[in-house]
Simulated scan of single mutants.
Amino acid sequence: MSSSVGPTATPPPAGSRTGAARAPQNKGWVSGMVLFAGVLMLVGGVLEVFRGIMAIAEDDVFVTTPRYVFRFDLTSWGWIHLVIGALIALVGFFVIKGAAWARITGIFLVSLGLIGNFLDLPYYPLWSLVVIALDVFVIWALAVYRED
């Protein structure tokens, strides 16, 4: 008398896909996160362009810090934000379209934007902190995505 408690087959090798039901659930969630990251890149890049224009046109909108180690002229910061923001928005568009190269480029550009916002922290502190937090999320969402 033998009783069968479970399947007697050997488990599949590590790294192989077994359940077809697991893949769509994971893919849908990650794809949604990448789409959301692409939209954040697009909108955040446009807002960075506007921030750059504000710094170029009106230096007195921002707080000035006289003894800041990474002090640049606000017009220089404006051009930095304008260029990086335009590139992030452009790459964000291609992330939304599903281009694989855009995810890698997006991680690089958003990282540059994060560093720029950190260095620009004394000039526009609250906005810089919000953008830094969003940039960390975008980098994470683009880094964990895996195509099937």
Rank of each mutant, 00 (worst) to 15 (best):
M54K: 14
A55N: 04
A55I: 04
I56F: 13
I56T: 10
A57L: 15
E58D: 14
D59C: 05
D59H: 08
D59M: 11
D60A: 13
D60P: 03
D60N: 12
V61C: 01
V61N: 08
V61T: 14
F62C: 00
F62I: 03
F62T: 03
F62A: 02
F62M: 10
V63C: 00
V63L: 05
T64A: 09
T65R: 06
T65G: 03
T65N: 09
P66W: 03
P66T: 14
P66S: 14
P66F: 14
R67D: 15
Y68P: 01
V69H: 13
F70R: 06
R71V: 08
R71S: 12
R71T: 10
F72I: 03
D73K: 05
D73Q: 07
L74V: 14
T75P: 00
T75W: 04
T75C: 02
S76F: 07
G78C: 03
G78T: 02
W79R: 02
I80R: 08
H81W: 08
H81E: 06
L82R: 07
V83S: 04
V83M: 05
V83I: 13
V83F: 08
V83R: 02
I84Y: 01
G85I: 07
G85Y: 03
A86S: 15
L87T: 06
L87E: 01
I88P: 00
I88G: 02
I88D: 01
I88A: 13
V91L: 00
V91S: 04
V91D: 07
V91E: 11
G92V: 15
G92I: 15
F93S: 13
F94L: 11
V95P: 10
I96S: 10
K97L: 15
G98P: 02
G98F: 09
A99T: 07
A100C: 03
W101V: 11
W101M: 00
W101G: 09
A102S: 15
A102F: 08
A102Q: 00
A102R: 01
R103P: 10
R103D: 12
R103G: 10
R103C: 09
I104E: 09
T105N: 15
T105Y: 14
I107R: 11
L109F: 11
L109W: 03
V110W: 05
V110D: 04
S111I: 00
S111V: 13
L112T: 04
L112K: 01
G113T: 06
L114K: 03
I115Q: 04
G116S: 14
G116C: 09
G116R: 01
N117G: 00
N117P: 01
F118K: 00
D120S: 09
Y123Q: 02
Y123W: 08
Y124Q: 09
Y124H: 09
Y124T: 08
P125V: 04
P125K: 02
L126R: 05
L126A: 11
L126Y: 07
L126I: 12
L126T: 08
L126F: 10
W127M: 06
W127A: 11
W127L: 09
S128N: 08
L129Q: 05
L129I: 13
L129H: 03
V130E: 06
V130A: 11
V131Y: 07
A133E: 07
A133Y: 09
L134C: 08
L134R: 02
V136I: 14
V136D: 01
V136A: 12
F137I: 12
F137N: 06
V138T: 15
A141T: 12
A141E: 07
A141N: 10
L142C: 12
L142M: 07
L142F: 07
L142I: 11
L142Q: 05
A143V: 06
A143C: 05
A143W: 13
